[in-house]
């Protein structure tokens, strides 16, 4: 009997696990299903513990809260821009569909859906308590604190849960830098480990405190313009005196908040055309 003290070392199971550990990603879908099934009975306890954790140690709030009303006005203005661009995008999609002679299925805009963060993994992927039963689909945009990008819903989506991949796990994103006067420039953000976002811009006036917003065509239109963070530090780039490296602090950090909003994009991002630049 394998589970008794007199049994042999679990060599064969260990070899089997080693083989599984080296399988290509495409062959590991079953592991996600098994993990999801195992997690079902544990979800209520995980939810309660998350609530307790958030009560004991509330998540770090926006580090730029003290900046005054200027940034909030900026947020409102950018939301209006986002809304206008979304409308233009929908119109353009309808025109393309008409030109191609294809009947485009009508996708009713769905209202945002509030969801609670159930667990947060070390890899910063977090799970919410809403799933396909509530209309959540892969590619939906998840927002925290009103206008901060928290991530994108990943595949697979369960009936009552979904995993969300934060933007920093994507390797790099394109973003736009804003200060009180408006757009300062574009930059490519990379995340070298746990040090936060970093990006390079042309050397110029101090940018500390400027806000960084998503402007990446690989993300859904609904996510464009959402806040990624604010500039926390500036350092010269070695051997390139005309460039400055910016350190971007995310207002979210590892402590994801207790509640997020899911912006249901209507169709999975995988089939959605690129957003206009």
């Amino acid at each position: 009997m394998a589970f008794t003290g007199r049994s042999r070392t679990p060599l064969i199971p260990a070899i089997a696990v080693a083989v599984m550990a080296l399988l290509p990603p495409a062959w590991l879908g079953w592991a996600g299903e098994v993990g999801a099934v195992l997690w079902i009975p544990l979800q209520p306890a995980a939810h309660a513990l998350t609530e307790m954790r958030l009560w004991l140690r509330p998540p770090d709030r926006d580090r730029t809260e003290g900046l005054g009303d200027g940034p909030r006005d900026e947020v409102d203005g950018l939301r209006a821009v986002v809304a206008r661009l979304r409308l233009e995008l929908e119109q353009a999609k309808a025109e393309i569909a008409a030109l191609e002679g294809a009947a485009r299925p009508e996708v009713a805009p769905a209202p945002p859906l509030a969801a609670a963060v159930v667990t947060v993994d070390r890899s910063r992927i977090f799970r919410i308590n809403r799933g396909s039963r509530h209309g959540v689909a892969p590619g939906d945009v998840v927002v925290e604190g009103g206008g901060t990008l928290a991530g994108r819903v990943a595949e697979p989506v369960g009936a009552a849960w979904a995993d969300v991949i934060p933007p920093e796990r994507g390797g790099s994103v394109r973003a736009r830098l804003f200060d009180a006067s408006g757009t300062v420039g574009e930059l490519l953000l990379i995340e070298p480990g746990s040090e936060g976002w970093q990006g390079e811009v042309d050397a110029g006036p101090p940018r500390t405190g400027s806000r960084v917003r998503l402007d990446d065509p690989s993300w859904p239109a609904a996510a464009q313009g959402l806040l990624l963070g604010s500039v926390e530090g500036e350092n010269p780039v070695e051997q390139r005196p005309l460039r400055t490296r910016l350190a971007i602090a995310s207002p979210l950090g590892v402590d994801r908040g207790g509640t997020v909003l899911v912006w249901r994009c209507g169709v999975p991002t995988a089939t959605e055309p690129e957003a206009p630049r």
Binding site: V17, L28, G35, R122, R152, P156, I165, T269
Partner: peptide, 17 residues
């Protein structure tokens, strides 16, 4: 099995082992 790992921008997998 409780640890999701990103497999791409839009999917997560769990790697036993």
């Amino acid at each position: 099995l409780a640890t999701p790992i990103p497999a791409s921008d839009l999917s997560v997998i769990r790697v036993p082992g």
